[in-house]
Design a protein around this nucleic acid. Structure first.
Ligand SMILES: [Mn+2]
Ligand SMILES: [Mn+2]
Ligand SMILES: [Zn+2]
Ligand SMILES: [Zn+2]
Lengths: 144, 144
DNA sequence: TCTCATTTCGGAATCATTCCAGTTTGTGCT
DNA sequence: AGCACAAACTGGAATGATTCCGAAATGAGA
């Protein structure tokens, strides 16, 4: 199981010595309840606003950033579109619609052929993005 | 060979009925000469400015967008970092350094294990991004 | 050379995200 | 229950890459 859930996220907050605030709980709820949708900051903000008396957009951004950097969720970055957040940490491909922005999970079946995906998921692939992020050998040598 | 070169890009412009302007030629030169570096708009702008008498940043953006949308080059989108452009259209993984922004090409050798990449390319992978972009089945049904 | 659709220009607008300074609030301790 | 203080929150301003726009320039065919 590599999908986020409420109890686990709260545990992780405690382990890191972070405070349990109504804002964080509301954001966690919003993330868990919309985990299938790859929500963006605005959706999280709207959903969290329903649960907690007060939440600011600044807090939502700070929290999503914190969670991403801690590896609790995955940030999907875009150019002229809001970043989206993925609560599924398992290895899979995100099928991203260029027109409506829908993001569909496609779990890897050993081989990954765009044509297979089109057939099995009804999604026409026009462009692929495969990126590995980390540190280059020069930066590894360099201090801090 | 899936790497951009000058003659080919010019041919493609002609085929599409686009005009050959000094600005476009300068941008093409800059793209080809820096194709290993995955350049961003600013670098292209600076390099192109040396070759052509006048180039504006607006034109650089418009041209890079046009080339990307035509599939001549590939746009790599980021969050708080300039977009970068890739002149290698073959299937490969871009290893992106989180600290310095360097982008290294890693051509796929059948299997793609982060550990192999660390060993062979001296790059430590901390995060992977695999995305397929295109159109979802709902959007395919919907008109234009 | 003439014509005009295309291209370019520069400055303003956009907009998601970050920053900041002041205020509030969890949490551990008495 | 009350205290103290570091951590968290807030709203508004700042940021910065990219896009938009109207006006001026120009490539290319006739
Ligand atoms: Mn996903
Ligand atoms: Mn590349
Ligand atoms: Zn769609
Ligand atoms: Zn580096």
């Amino acid at each position: 199981m590599r999908k986020i859930n409420k109890e686990n996220l709260i545990d992780q907050l405690k382990q890191k010595g972070l405070k349990i605030t109504p804002q964080r709980l509301a954001i966690i709820d919003a993330l868990v309840e919309n985990r299938h949708a790859h929500p963006g900051a605005t959706l999280i903000y709207n959903e969290a606003s329903k649960k907690a008396k007060r939440v600011s957009l600044s807090t939502v951004y700070a929290t999503l950033k914190e969670f991403s950097e801690s590896g609790l969720i995955k940030q999907l970055e875009f150019d002229r579109m809001e970043n989206r957040y993925d609560g599924d940490l398992s290895e899979h491909i995100n099928l991203i619609c260029k027109r409506c922005g829908t993001i569909i999970d496609y779990h890897i079946p050993a081989t990954l052929e765009p044509k297979d995906i089109a057939r099995k998921a009804g999604f026409v692939v026009t462009d692929t993005r495969m990126e590995f992020h980390g540190y280059c050998c020069d930066c590894l040598k360099r201090p801090g």
